[in-house]
């Protein structure tokens, strides 16, 4: 993939805080028009990576290129950003807050105000256009900030943990907004530690743990790092069943679970039927992104408290 096909690339990014390498040599390449996920447990270095990619902080080592610029700052007006720690001036009206965020990215105030009104109507927040931020619920304020980060129609949108703190209804709204932005042609980079969103939205993703990139590829690639699993419930369980099953088969409360054999399931099923065990239930489970994530970063890291 050539440089023109990439909205963003970075190579060997390193950031140290107090001697600790919080980000330790991360490479990243985000194709134009893609929804790209940066996944990782809490404290993995996702936010620091995003901040370096945007030029908010400078890497101690490494290079990056954003929308064709060596300095991310030069592309600032073509970028939208929703930080992990949401922040709006509480005394501003919602419409003004969106226009202000647009103005910071070079959009005219008047245009920003008009767009803010239209966007808020479309997002079901029309009634709150003239309400002060301090009067809005957390979810509403978060959506207002998201609208503020796209009001100038950026080519590249960065969302840091966009779903955190949102109820399921607002999470759905946010997913719809992200997809609408993608359909508009924007490239979207977002970080999360909630796999369900990444699984639904991402074209490609990178998994970070301990400041290092542990995986880069598509969701399917990530899932492919784990074998498919079989859940088998015998009709008649006689002695000798365990000997027929693969070595890793483990008894569960409702049958047996094991990794799909390399030869496929059919030869095994034939043997089980022939031996009279029969089949009361059979399911072949494709591993999810969550399983792949846990395997890639390690269970301990994946379950770190927030």
């Amino acid at each position: 993939m050539g440089d023109d096909d990439l909205a963003l690339w970075a190579s060997g990014l390193v950031k140290r805080f107090g001697g600790r390498r919080v980000v330790d040599g991360i490479d990243i390449a985000v194709p134009r028009g893609a929804v790209y996920g940066v996944l990782g447990p809490n404290g993995a270095g996702k936010t620091t990576t995003l901040r370096m990619l945007l030029g908010i902080i400078e890497p101690d080592e490494g290079r990056r290129r954003l929308l064709g610029h060596d300095s991310p700052r030069e592309a600032s007006d073509r970028v939208g950003y929703l930080p992990e720690e949401r922040g709006l001036y509480p005394g501003m009206k919602a419409r003004e807050a969106i226009a202000f965020l647009g103005a910071l990215r070079g959009l005219e105030w008047r245009t920003g105000r008009k767009r803010a009104e239209t966007m808020m109507e479309a997002a079901g927040l029309g009634h709150a256009v003239d309400q002060k931020i301090r009067k809005l619920s957390k979810g509403m304020a978060q959506l207002v900030q998201l609208l503020g980060s796209v009001v100038h129609e950026p080519e590249f949108l960065v969302l840091d943990e966009p779903f955190s703190g949102l109820d399921p209804v607002n999470q759905e709204r946010l997913e719809a907004l992200i997809l609408a932005e993608r359909d508009r042609g924007a490239t979207i980079l977002f970080s999360t530690h909630v796999m369900a969103h990444a699984e639904r939205l991402c074209d490609r993703l990178t998994i970070i743990a301990g400041g290092k990139a542990r995986f880069e590829g598509t969701v399917a690639d990530a899932r492919a790092t784990l074998p498919w699993r079989v859940h088998y419930v015998p009709h008649h369980e006689h002695e000798g069943l365990a000997a027929l099953l693969p070595a890793d088969a483990a008894r569960a409360s409702d049958g047996w679970r094991f990794v799909m054999p390399d030869t496929g399931i059919e030869p095994l099923l034939a043997k089980l039927i022939e031996a009279g065990h029969g089949i009361s239930g059979l399911s072949i489970e494709r591993p999810g992104l969550h399983d792949a994530f846990v395997r890639i970063v390690g269970r301990e890291a994946a379950e770190q408290p927030a």
Partner: peptide
């Protein structure tokens, strides 16, 4: 927390 928004833009 507005500083992060300002610093990014």
């Amino acid at each position: 927390k507005v500083i992060e928004v300002l610093a990014a833009a």
